[in-house]
Simulated assay, not measured.
Amino acid sequence: MESQLLTLVLEEIMQEAYFPCEWKVEWLENNHFINLELQFMLANPEKRSISDRFNASWNQELVPLQYQVIFYLKNRVKVQNKNVLKAIPVDPIHGIKYGDVIAVVKYLKRLATAVRSRWQDYYQTMQAGPFEIIWNDEDYLQVVQSLQDTYRYSDRDIYFPQSNVDQPN
């Protein structure tokens, strides 16, 4: 069986999922991780000062918010979770299960689909604190379980791209 690269699988699954926002998959070879980024442009018609969880603030008509999920090589990268929505380890030898990649995208789509309505609620009530979406591991694991219960979870391994960074010349 031919091995598949995580970057290509992510691109394909994301395209098929029809996300309600801009997104990109980017392999950062030098840092040994794959970045899956979602970007939303949210309406701020009154040009209120809005901040995100990183304390960046905007007072323009469109507020750009970005959320990232990273897939990183386990034992190669030290991840600081405060900068990403979720950091997911990938075994350098065994990769990651295709079913887990599907579950990540399905769960992200659920989060992304709720952003605009959550934004409206936040904007109308001007809640204290930054606007953010939060990854909930229990909800994610329910997606994994649902895939398994309906026999749509695949144990096929998906691999991290080979890096030329640490290769001798």
Rank of each mutant, 00 (worst) to 15 (best):
W58E: 06
C21G: 06
W27L: 11
M126Q: 15
Q80P: 02
W119N: 09
M1V: 12
S57H: 15
L73Q: 15
Q142G: 02
S51Q: 15
Y98M: 15
M126D: 14
N44G: 08
N83A: 09
V101A: 03
S154T: 10
V77S: 05
R48K: 15
I34M: 08
S146V: 04
V25I: 13
H32P: 04
Q127P: 03
D137Q: 15
T113N: 09
W135K: 08
L38C: 10
F131Q: 06
P89H: 11
Q124A: 10
Q162N: 13
Q124I: 07
K82E: 12
P45M: 04
G99I: 00
P89D: 08
Q162L: 09
I96N: 02
D166C: 06
P168C: 01
W58C: 06
Y122G: 09
L147V: 01
A103T: 04
A56H: 15
Q120R: 10
Q142R: 15
L147Q: 03
F33A: 00
V115T: 07
D166S: 11
L62H: 13
I70H: 04
D166A: 07
R152D: 13
Q120F: 03
R116Q: 10
L42K: 11
I158G: 01
Y140M: 02
D157P: 07
A17K: 13
T113V: 12
V90S: 03
K74R: 15
Q39I: 09
L42E: 00
Y122C: 06
Y140C: 00
Q60N: 11
